[in-house]
Design a protein around this nucleic acid. Structure first.
Length: 805
RNA sequence: GCCGAAGUGGUGGAAUAGGCAUACACGCACGACUCAAAAUCGUGUGAGCUUCGCUCGUGAGGGUUCAACUCCCUCCUUCGGCACCA
């Protein structure tokens, strides 16, 4: 034995063995406790695997492997989120069917993942573009349609002129397209929408049921943006029209000196006859419409607006007539599209009032409303507010809300920033929306037994400038008959967004080949919810929120057993290039995992990615660091040459062994892989110093390292003639008492500064420790001639002597 | 602007129920092996000084304490999220 450590030879060998023996298949034995570990399935791009991919995969692979050794039935699956733009764009350029490209990319990705030795259960591999899979994506959509959660609406959407596709709010980043960065413009389109807002409250509240890292919870709450306030009705003078506003500060109602409505507000057209300056209004609307959402939302920008001449509203608390303005700082998509302006206590309103000379009334005392809006709600007392005078803000809110309700002028109201989900894409490479439009019957679902609705085979995938899907041109696909009346009808030509398939894929893994249902009831009940889901922070407001929404919907249908899909959510940091910048071809700092595997081995790559730093933070790649990890494995390999017989830990190593088992076990659980590995490196250093190790000790070391470096540990296990495989062993346990060193060196301090060291036994009485401390020459130098005021002895930690002159 | 996280050697990073700051790794220096280099092994490596020891040192400045990277106060910087959301 004791050949050189040759990862190229052993890694392939073990990967084949695991595959042949089905080592990592999730078992059907439902009597065992289950552990469902999930990582985000990749989009199989033409670029191949990125060194960023293995980081989260290795992390949960470590947990999965550990859980199996702890006796769990583990489900750790992998699949492909394969619909999407890059494949379609490539198809357009190269005239190849996106399915062909997808298949090619999947093959490559799978090979790469396999070469890294992940313990995925490949028998459960899924692909969102597989008709057997998207049949159920379409099925879920139809259920939503049935329940009124999917609706088509004419609405302004975010349009990317480069991708020629509509984007959800979440896909617009700083005014640009998330995918290509091109500036996003507004376009009015008839779009399928999913009513995620119906679940807003539950999506916030149920965060209390799950164990997500705080930043994820915070970001979700932020994004949903719940705010409590009141809806208040303002009568428009001489009409039957009422302008409703939403406000979080109903207490300041007496200070509302004008109103502002959004340029898109329908009341403008409704009461057009009464408006004296309609031309001016139309111009303003035109201007506002031309701006992109980003331009409209851009801060620093000076507010603009036009007064609507001819319309006045009545402030319901004091019956004063107040003017109505339009301005694009009021958004039609939030609240009611109209606000009451309280310039004394709202910065935006204050700015607007100053610019246009509108009256500013102080209704909360404490500031100086002539110089700035006073927004402090903690200490202010109501003034100029009739029956609210003298109250603090909180009481005034309650009082006025009760009053509004009693008078029929308003009611408490909760609003959310979250908008409904624009679910249509004008693209070819996505799940067809399984609906048919009939002149007579309207939108009719494709009957369940006709699912899936397949994509037609076409030559041309080009999206159109008009914003229509390329499918619209395939007339013999579009033209069909109405399932209800049998008359002529047309298929919906929009397809679903990429987020559709990933909104429920974790359910499919539990029973991936089922053709009767999205998964069997038994499989779902046993495996769901996912116990641990790790993924990128970039998916917090998109995929994570969407999939929670779909899961809640399925929960309401009685299909899944829990209101939440994921019990625990953690997140990993990015891997940057060696120059500390994001890895990208254009920056020339891309590291290819294949190269690392070929040169150093998969175990080195895995080890390095886990050792590189805090799992949750971004870290730059370091080729030197990779070499260091390989060195560790080379040194670890050499342990084989010094193994002595023994069924117990040797007494010199016992404490260290128990300490290491504890440290490694706990650190793996807390995603502290870097320190878990450091502890194993330290133990190895100790042992190499000593020059011997016995069988009991090396067995434990092999098991501890196995989750991170599975190939080398299996190979060494066999080399040493141990029975079975490492992955079949039980995870080692530690004895808390045995982790405590009996004899330790501790520092002796004088006035808090270290002046010497003593060796004490934990059981030493204070007197003995004291005697040892004062036996030290250097200590005596600092104590002599001074008065000892106080002595603190923390056994096993420190001995501190406080002296005074 | 609001919310959140974080600032530690030349580098990645350890250590927070307060108890020897810099574990582990990289890099660097020197030594061994070698004709030589690489690899490997060994030693050293926070800064400074009058070097058996002392002084300073965890973004800055205060404070609490026998003792502070850790707790409190005031700042500064960086990163992330939200951002005219009424």
């Amino acid at each position: 034995m004791a050949k050189q450590y040759d990862p190229q030879a052993i890694e392939k060998k073990w990967q084949d063995i695991w595959e042949k023996e089905g080592t990592f298949r999730a078992s059907n034995d439902r009597s065992k406790p289950k552990f469902y570990a999930l990582v985000e399935f990749p989009y199989p791009s033409g670029e191949g695997l990125h060194v960023g991919h293995p980081r989260p995969y290795t992390a949960l692979d470590v947990l999965s492997r550990k859980r199996r050794m702890e006796g769990y039935n583990v489900l750790f699956p992998m699949g492909w989120d394969a619909f999407g733009l890059p494949a379609e764009n490539y198809a357009i350029q190269n005239k190849i069917h996106p399915a062909v490209i997808t298949e090619r990319n999947v093959t490559r990705f799978k090979e790469q993942l396999r070469s890294l030795g992940f313990s995925f259960d490949w028998s459960r591999e899924i692909n969102t573009t597989d008709p057997a899979y998207f049949k159920w994506t379409q099925w879920i959509f139809l259920k939503m349609f049935e329940k009124g959660l999917a609706y088509k609406q004419e609405m302004p959407i975010n349009w990317c002129p480069a991708c020629k596709v509509g984007l959800a709010n979440e896909e617009v980043v700083n005014g640009g397209c998330e995918r290509c960065g091109h500036e996003v413009v507004t376009k009015v389109k008839n779009q399928w929408m999913l009513k995620i807002t119906a679940y807003a409250e539950r999506l916030i509240n149920d965060l209390d049921l799950v164990d997500y890292i705080d930043r994820v919870k915070t970001q979700q709450r932020n994004w949903i943006g719940r705010s409590e306030g009141a809806e208040v009705s303002f009568q428009i003078v001489d009409t039957d029209e009422v302008l409703k506003v939403f406000t979080t500060r109903p207490d300041t109602l007496f200070g509302a000196t004008y109103m502002v409505i959004s340029p898109e507000h329908p009341v403008i057209d409704k009461l057009g006859d009464l408006i004296a300056n309609m031309d001016e209004i139309r111009d303003y609307q035109e201007e506002a419409h031309k701006k992109t959402d980003f331009e409209r939302a851009e801060l620093n920008k000076e507010k603009t607006g036009v007064e609507i001449k001819g319309l006045k509203a009545i402030n319901p608390v004091n019956n004063k007539e107040i003017p109505i303005w339009i301005s694009d700082y009021v958004l039609m998509t939030y609240g009611t599209g109209a606000i009451m302006a309280v310039p004394g206590h709202d910065e935006r309103d204050w700015e607007f009032a100053k610019k246009y000379g509108l009256p500013i009334v102080e209704v909360v005392a404490g500031g100086d409303v002539s110089t700035a809006a006073y927004t402090n709600t903690e200490t202010g007392i109501m003034v100029n507010s009739g029956f609210l005078n003298g109250m603090d803000v909180e009481d005034a809110k309650k009082e006025i809300t009760a009053w509004l309700k009693a008078e029929g002028l308003g009611a408490p109201k909760v609003n959310y920033k979250l908008r409904d989900w624009v679910f249509s894409r004008q693209r070819y490479w996505g799940e067809p929306i399984p609906l048919v439009h009939c002149e007579k019957c309207g939108w009719v679902p494709v009957p369940e037994d006709e699912l899936p609705v397949l994509l037609p085979d076409v030559k041309n995938y080009e999206p159109t400038d008009t914003g229509e899907s390329p499918l619209a041109k395939i007339r013999d696909w579009v033209e069909t008959t109405c399932p209800t009346c049998g008359g002529p009808a047309e298929r919906e030509t929009d397809t679903m967004p990429q987020w559709a398939g990933s909104s429920w894929y974790f359910i499919r893994y539990t029973d991936p080949h089922n053709d009767e249902a999205l998964a069997s009831k038994e499989a779902i009940d046993y495996w769901m919810p996912v116990d641990w889901y790790n993924g990128g922070m970039e998916h917090t407001t998109l995929h994570l929120l969407y999939s929670r929404f779909w899961h809640k919907f399925l929960y309401d249908l009685g299909i899944v057993p829990s209101p939440e899909p994921y019990q625990k959510r953690t997140s990993h940091g990015m891997i940057l290039g060696e120059n500390n910048e994001k890895m990208s071809k254009s920056r020339g700092n891309v590291i290819n995992p294949d190269d690392v595997v070929n040169e150093y081995g998969a175990d080195t790559l895995r080890l390095y990615e886990m050792f590189i730093g805090d799992f949750e933070k971004s870290v730059p790649w370091s080729q030197d660091g990779v070499r260091g990890c390989r060195r560790f494995l080379d040194r670890f390999w050499k342990l084989q040459e010094m193994v002595m017989p023994g069924t117990e830990y040797t007494s010199e190593l016992e404490t260290k062994m128990h300490q290491t088992i504890k440290k490694v076990s706990e650190d793996y659980e807390n995603l502290k892989f870097n320190t878990a590995i450091a502890a194993q490196m330290a133990l190895l250093n100790d042992i190499l110093q000593r020059g011997t190790i016995n069988e009991a000790e090396i067995k434990t070391m092999l098991i501890l390292l196995n989750p991170v470096a599975p190939h080398i540990t299996e190979e060494m296990w066999v080399n040493l003639g141990f029975p079975g495989m490492v992955n079949e062993q039980s995870w080692p346990t530690w004895d808390e008492e045995k982790t405590v060193e009996q004899t330790v060196d501790i520092a002796v301090q004088v006035n808090g500064r270290v002046r010497g060291q003593i060796t004490v036994d934990l059981t030493d009485p204070v007197e003995l420790a004291r005697a040892k401390a004062l036996d030290n020459e250097n200590i005596l130098r600092f104590v002599e001639g001074k008065t000892i005021v106080k002595e603190i002895y923390v056994p096993g930690r420190i001995y501190n002597i406080v002296v005074k002159n």
